[in-house]
């Protein structure tokens, strides 16, 4: 039997009368990389928020690493990390204090050396005692990457992680993703077709709260994919 890391069945989410997700079903193998595309308002971020325990689904089942998300979210939280366009960092704490704060909440062993290692990796060691509010957007996002990885999560959710990054920060993020690719499972929401299709093992297009395309990378026919993507994005414009 294949090692399924994320299994989603009949996932629905309503905000009042607005149905944002209308029944999502998919599964992702351990070590897989799912790229999620779609127009604004398609439900991509809502899906990631549900998978990362930030939102409760209206209906449906989500199992992560064999654990029911609704029944027992705490063990799941220890396994997941989220990098989004929001850095989730306190501006009036310095870089070290931010990482330490989250590290303590996640009960990270040997926290100080983990902080050193991550600050080195995101090239912020020399700014470790500077307040985050003094950082540029690219530096803040690099620190956000370190924050998301502080507890060595095995599953990473990336919600448009490249937005606002300067080319150097993009290189650092891509390098990090490369380094940890083998031992992690990824779900990435992106509008960047090239990056998303290059990195993924599976690709999904969400439109109007439904999956309109879902295929393994090797089975993807670029023309068909782009036609469906353009159709869904045009729908957003009209």
């Amino acid at each position: 039997m294949e090692d399924i890391e994320i299994k989603v069945s009949g996932l629905k989410k309503d905000f009042g009368r607005r149905k944002v997700l209308k029944g999502i079903d998919f599964s992702l193998k351990k070590g897989g990389f799912l790229s999620v595309f779609g127009p604004n308002g398609a439900g991509k971020t809502t899906m990631v928020k549900i998978l990362s325990t930030l939102e409760a689904p209206t209906k449906g089942d989500v199992t992560i690493a064999g654990i029911d998300l609704m029944a027992d979210p705490i063990p799941i939280k220890k396994k997941i990390g989220l990098i989004s366009h929001n850095p989730l960092l306190y501006g009036d704490l310095n870089a070290h204090e931010n990482l330490r704060f989250y590290g303590v909440l996640y009960k990270v062993d040997d926290l100080e050396s983990r902080i050193d290692e991550l600050l080195d990796r995101v090239e912020l060691s020399n700014r470790r005692y500077d307040y985050v509010r003094t950082f540029s957007q690219g530096m803040t996002q690099r620190l956000a990457i370190a924050r998301a990885l502080i507890h060595k999560p095995s599953i990473l959710f990336l919600d448009e992680p490249h937005i606002g990054l300067d080319p150097h920060a993009v290189d650092i993020l891509d390098g990090l993703l490369d380094d940890i690719r083998a031992e992690h499972t990824f779900v990435m929401v992106t509008h960047n077709l090239e990056k998303g299709l290059t990195l993924c093992s599976q690709a999904m297009i969400l439109d109007g709260g439904k999956i309109v395309f879902f295929e393994e990378k090797n089975d993807i026919k670029r023309n068909k994919f782009e036609a469906i993507y353009k159709k869904s994005v045009k729908g957003e414009v009209v």
Binding site: L54, I80, S84, N86, L89, G91, Y106, R147
Partner: peptide
Amino acid sequence: AHEKEGGCLDGLLLSPID
């Protein structure tokens, strides 16, 4: 106020704490 800035409330809610 500090939790609303930078989406830090989500950071707290993501953490494995009650």
